[in-house]
């Protein structure tokens, strides 16, 4: 597999209940490629957390998954409000999500920590008022 495989998704920001469509599709696609189930699990959970973040905080965005020979890259890009304090946002338990989101079982402040937990590398670029791009990498 020397060529890069790209999967692109538009994440709809208005429909909280459909969040996860892209991650579940990615899970299927990676299964078809015959990748290790634990790798698939890590990639799809990290992506789902990112998807949920984009829906909760940024009115959606764009998701790209690139499959290289020895790693998988996930790029999540939104034009939402940006993250004021990335260090704080990375702390387990810190959340700015609304009560309505919490009543659905999200907003526990575990999204970004989970994304870091399940990936080998994670980079957040964010500008307040402009948007956020999260780039994650899982080694194969």
């Amino acid at each position: 597999m020397s060529e890069v495989l790209n999967f692109h998704f538009h994440v709809d920001g208005d429909d909280f209940t459909s969040a996860g469509q892209a991650s579940i599709q990615i899970k299927k696609n990676l299964r078809r490629l015959g990748l290790d189930p634990e790798i698939i699990r890590r990639v799809s959970i990290a992506m789902y957390e990112g998807e949920i973040n984009m829906v909760i905080h940024a009115h959606g965005g764009e998701a790209d998954v690139n499959v290289y020979e020895d790693f998988i890259e996930i790029i999540l890009k939104d034009t939402g409000p940006g993250i004021e304090n990335i260090e704080k946002a990375m702390q387990e338990g810190f959340s700015t999500a609304a009560d309505q989101i919490r009543s659905l079982g999200f907003g526990a402040g575990m999204g970004l920590p989970n994304m870091r937990r399940y990936t080998d590398d994670m980079k957040i670029e964010s500008t307040v008022g402009v948007g956020t791009t999260v780039t994650m990498r899982v080694n194969l």
């Binding site: 969040a19 996860g20 189930p37 699990r41 079982g105 526990a108 999204g111 989970n114």
Partner: peptide, 28 residues
């Protein structure tokens, strides 16, 4: 019941016991 905790801590092939019942439970 907190979905991100479940995704962070549950392991493959576990039985997941919860009282949450919204659509996101299926994705998780």
């Amino acid at each position: 019941d907190l979905l991100s905790w479940v995704m962070g801590k549950a392991e493959a092939d576990n039985v997941w016991i919860t009282i949450m019942s919204n659509i996101n439970v299926i994705a998780v």
